[in-house]
Structure formats: C-alpha cells, structure tokens
Design a protein around this nucleic acid. Structure first.
Lengths: 210, 210
DNA sequence: ACCTGAACACCGTTCAAGT
DNA sequence: ACCTGAACACCGTTCAAGT
C-alpha cells in the first residue's frame, strides 16, 4: 500500500507527484465542485477540499488568497463551460430566430445538468467584482446571447432596440427558470413542466413580438 | 452605565425584560436580518445574532432547532411581507391586465428594496422543504400572481392555458430580474436600465400575446 | 420554561519551519 | 517554490447546571 512515493521519477507514479507540483489548483477546484454536488454549497469547506486533495489545510493558500478566490475560480470554470455549451447550441441551427431559442434552451439545459457549477456561479458567496477573470468569463457567455440577437436584427427583426435591451429580459427569464428549477421552487408551487420545455414555450412566444 | 437591571418591574425597564421573556425569537430574526444587510448572507452567524440580542450563544436553541430553522423563520417573514406588498400593488388598479403589470413591478420593487430578505428567501442556505410554514407563506405570495392571471382569463384573455402555465414564466422573469439586479450582474454586463422599468417593458410586451 | 457556562468538533487564516 | 505543523480566533451544537 505504500507505493505512492516509490520511484518518484518513474512515469507510473508521476500522477501523484504532478498532483503536488502544479495541479493542486485543479485538484482543489475539483474537490470543491464534488463537495457542492454532494452536500450543497454550504457543505463546502476549504479544509475538507484540502483533505480530499491529500494536502494540509494550509496548502491551498499557496494557490488562492482565500476561500472566496477558490470559489471564484470554480465559477470561472463554470462560465467557460457554459460558454462552450452555448456556442454548441447556437451553431446547431442557422435560422436566427431558432438560434435564439436554441441558446435559451441550451442555457437552461446546461444549468439544470450542472447545478453544482450554477450555484457557485450565482450563489451569494461568490463576489464577481473581486475576481476579474470571472467577470471576463461571464461576459463571454453573455456575448453568445447578444450575438444571436444581433443576428436577428440584421435580418430586420427586433429593430429599434439596443441588443442589450432585448438580451436583459431574456437572460433574466432563463436565469429565473434555471434558478427556480434547481432550488425546487417551481415544484413547490405545483409546476411540473420540464424547465427546458417551459423555456422553449416562453421564448417562442416572446419572439412573436419582435 | 449599569442601569440595565435596575428596578426590573418598573415600566421604564420592561423593554429589557420583555426581550428575554418571549421576544427572543423576534430579537434573533431581527439581528439575523441586520447582519445579512450589513455583511451579506455569509456574514450572518448564530453566535453574533445571539450576542446582539444580549443572550448566550446557547440561548437560540430554546427557540430554533438550528441555524437553518432561524433562517427559515426570517424567510417566512419575508414572504409574508412580499405577499402584503403584492396585495397592495394589485389592489391599486382594477384593469386585469394592468393589475398583472403592477404585480410584476411590485415584486421587483419589493425585492430590490429588501435585498437582505430576498437573499435569505432564495439563498442556497435556506431549504424550504424542512420548514412547512415557509412553504405556505411562499405559496400565498405565488397565489397573488395566480389570481391576477385568472382575473385576465375571466375576461377572455390568455385562454387555453392553465393559470400556472402562464404564471411560471412570469415568475421566472421577475425572479430573474430581481436576482440579477441584487447580485449586480445586470450592471456587470453593461445593463444600466432600472430593474422596475425593465420589468414593466418585458411584462407589457409579454401581455400582447395573450 | 428559559437561560448560562463550559465543552467538543470543526473551520478560516497565519506563520515559522521544513524540503 | 511549495508544503507541513502548530497556533489563534471563531463558529455550530450539546448538555449539565442554574433561576
């Protein structure tokens, strides 16, 4: 059982070494995510994350200024993944109106599939202002929506409004659906409809106006 | 300075006594709310709340099973106040369509005016399922919206859909706007529009469909 | 019935010391 | 450069003891 530190230069054991030489950062964000998934956002602690990564409780402070910065790093990863999911959803159709609908669906689908990420990204323990990379990553995801809307405008739809003025209520809508679905509040008030179906219906109706 | 316990039966000092004989519950929820307002949701601790109420750290456990139950009591108060705000907003107009708009505006206005309450009501540290009174109080607030929608349907609008199917996207929209406004995310992506104005615009457009 | 004091396990953070 | 060990202040929770 004590083979862990044997022949530290061999390729077979390199994984354990790597874990402690440069990848602790990733090991900690992975552990944080797993903890949120298992025990909810309040079930995550820096100590437990360190324990799972196999290091002392002080080790994380070589990589993150404090607990909030670790959470911010997790949130940033989340926004990057969300951006990728939105890009994929957007490129699946060429009709600009259908693209907007697919983006909205993709947003809710990703959020509901990754409640751990989503709760860290929008939870009250994560403060975006103190982590510039996080702001950039979230802006990139928002830009996906913005692009889809300008795509519609270039074809004469939704004219007379700034793209941001259209994106704002739409983002609010999908964020609201995602949040209430993840927290279980939709179920609590007797709404059984699938969140993604609800999104499709709401956005399709919405687009009849523009 | 040591006048606090002087003449404990006098009416002048009764306030201090009352604080410790039956009103500790309210004193604790008040302190919790003040802490969330001052230091954010993660800045609240049971110990600090007890300290502010002038009791030992163990005293709260005579009134709440644990920290989560205290938070749930705060959230319940919040939903009761929100319900009152919605009732007032709804009764201010008689036209059913305008009433729906006023409800939506009232929702966002109340949320933005009481971010401390709102964050506890929808924060991840509050679990509704384990506190029946909280579920009842939130259902009552949701019913205000439902009533306004059935009011429209009785006049022939939005027919063919269950009231809940219309309420779901509308609640999602106002909750999304309120959440993103409180967290500052709307500002982060360059949206400067007043949340209440945004709500009016979005809901008014929405109602053109039904 | 309601509150205190003391205790326990746990957490975030710091810092000197190790390799 | 990166990690450990020990320390400190703080928190949630329990329980015996006080009034």
């Amino acid at each position: 059982m004590q083979t862990q530190r044997r022949r530290s230069t061999s390729s077979a054991d390199k994984r354990r070494d790597t874990y402690h030489h440069g990848d602790l950062k990733r090991a900690l964000t992975d552990a944080a995510l797993a903890l949120v998934r298992e025990k909810g956002p309040k079930g995550f602690s820096l100590s437990e994350a360190a324990r799972r990564a196999g290091v002392s409780v002080a080790a994380p402070y070589r990589h993150f200024a404090d607990k909030a910065q670790l959470l911010a790093a997790v949130a940033e990863q989340g926004f990057i993944q969300l951006h990728e999911a939105l890009s994929a959803a957007g490129h699946s159709v060429s009709d600009p109106k259908k693209r907007v609908i697919e983006l909205a669906r993709g947003y809710v689908r990703w959020a509901v599939a990754h409640p751990d990420y989503y709760q860290v990204m929008f939870g009250t323990e994560t403060i975006k202002a103190e982590h510039p990379g996080l702001l950039v990553a979230s802006a990139r995801a928002f830009d996906d929506l913005l692009d889809a809307i300008t795509g519609c405008q270039e074809l004469g739809m939704m004219r007379g409004l700034d793209a941001r003025e259209i994106a704002a209520p739409m983002w609010s809508l999908v964020h609201g659906i995602a949040s209430l679905a993840i927290s279980g509040d939709l179920h609590h008030v007797g709404i059984q409809e699938d969140p993604e179906a609800l999104t499709t219906r709401a956005v399709a109706d919405w687009l009849k106006i523009g």
